[in-house]
Nucleic acid binder design. Sequence first.
DNA 1: CTGAAAGCGCTTACAG
DNA 2: CTGAAAGCGCTTACAG
Lengths: 334, 334
Amino acid sequence: MKNNITMKDIADRLGISAVTVSKAINDKEGVSGELKEKIKSLALEMGYRYNAAAKSMKDGLSYNIGVVIPERFTGLTQSFYLRIYQQISKNLEECGYYSTLHILNSEDEEQMTLPRIYYEKKVDGFIILGQVSKGYIETIQKMELPKILLDFYDEHADIDSIVTDNFYGAYEITNYLIQQGHRQIAYVGNLYSTSSIQDRFLGYFKSLLEHRIPLQDHLILNDRDERGKFIDIELPESLPTAFVCNCDQVALELIFKLKKLGCDIPNDCSVVGFDNDIYSTLSEPHLTTVEVDVIMMAQTAVKLMMEKIRNPHRKSGRILVQGKIIYRDSVRKL
Amino acid sequence: MKNNITMKDIADRLGISAVTVSKAINDKEGVSGELKEKIKSLALEMGYRYNAAAKSMKDGLSYNIGVVIPERFTGLTQSFYLRIYQQISKNLEECGYYSTLHILNSEDEEQMTLPRIYYEKKVDGFIILGQVSKGYIETIQKMELPKILLDFYDEHADIDSIVTDNFYGAYEITNYLIQQGHRQIAYVGNLYSTSSIQDRFLGYFKSLLEHRIPLQDHLILNDRDERGKFIDIELPESLPTAFVCNCDQVALELIFKLKKLGCDIPNDCSVVGFDNDIYSTLSEPHLTTVEVDVIMMAQTAVKLMMEKIRNPHRKSGRILVQGKIIYRDSVRKL
DNA sequence: CTGAAAGCGCTTACAG
DNA sequence: CTGAAAGCGCTTACAG
């Protein structure tokens, strides 16, 4: 680049040393206020731009955080992780950090190929956004960099993680259905697909237990195969009065399906979702659901990452981010 | 970081110089094949990671591209730009480049505050994804870095831009409606909101002109205010037989609205959209629409950026990326 | 094919 | 308060 002004150039124009310019520009001690102002205004005038690469080299930090999202979570219909990523990027910027997105394709995940940004020291830490295979987690584990699992966790790994309180959210919304008089309540989701779905199921189950409602196998409805691909939901012969869906998207699908069967929502069947994402307001009626706090999740992840960079021994364990029920019109009081 | 292996460390172990290690690792000439292999395998064994910051400093390149998306295009309901961003990020990686996302908030846009990544030389170029104010474009113009406008353009600025061929896409889909026997065709969109909406309108208009169908003011329906906020669409007293909507989201809204009025789609009214995004398959019936080629747009942007980095004088002007009509079930033959 | 020297732009630690 | 020296890890250009 042509217009390449350095601290030395500023120093020369002022007949001082680059050290002093450095101190002034970084607001460090050791420069008189007067000189500092002079330096800063000249820097501005000369169109000086700080060279972050030089600093990076000095202190071995890139001031970048890598965010890894498995490709399968980023289709046309899935903007959730991209939205979290966006928030992360915003929050990082406020800390003088930047983010680099790495979409992890399934091939790299299987072969446990770490992102190139790791091998090029382009990042100081990783946020893994979305469940990856055990093998991949183990590989990640070996990197001697701060890392955080976001929106999922793994018991065998002691990597810090931040997740929505899926268990409690599903527990609460099931309680709500029961308060509304429902007793025949189905759960929609593949229990072996992701830990989120599993935990939401368990929250649902806890609510049933507390209310002495027996768990019925035929009321656990599968919505996807184990690789996450949606399948047609098979309804039980006699319909329950309510459905707890593991996510809004599936709730929306279910509503479409029920409607085609001539079922009126919520008069014949109540349906609740989870996430409060775009799908929650696309159905008629709009979905009662559990809102996942995207802002808080991103914020927590960034804050924790900054702490871990400062102190690599910082351990947080598993942090739960509370959701909250959004009451809309898909539930009927019996 | 503790585990900090450098080329020098490898060189010392082998009793050679760092220069030779550098050549080997970068697959450059001037090392015997045998030695090169020995160096590479030792590097692997020692867990060597290349320090990109050092290279960055040497050649004044960060190997990062900044992608700027105005915040207003990134709401819960708008994943389009985030999807393009994702593709950009993927494509860049294949070129050994990485992306940094900068969400431009409206305050910074008004005050023409450039992203910090610019002032810290953290990026070698900018892709502006989504229409920004004239003032902001002018400010961007002053940066002596390669820059590309993506999904919009500005006549007064001679920044290279890449846009969907909105004009032609709307022209084609309107032609299709006319072929299907429609004559009363409305356009839905605020003509003063974005250049995309304007150009799509003009394509629609050209089709009318060619078919000697007069343009009727009361068939141009506003869908949003000038800041992009959606408003309730006011329908004309007597409904047209078809609607060309400037985007799928609005088409979906319109369908909901028409249905509430007891209008059957497509039997009473045909509706077409634009984008082929998530909204296009959420309506019943699914939308006939123009698919925007996200993959190609991202690819073109990255390719052009790489060329501009190599040769800063490279000019491409305005590149149009063709869309294609996706035929579904929202149009009826009259 | 191999390597000594110099330099990229900044900062740290120390001396004045 | 100010600055000379050394160093961060790599690469380029040149010499052998």
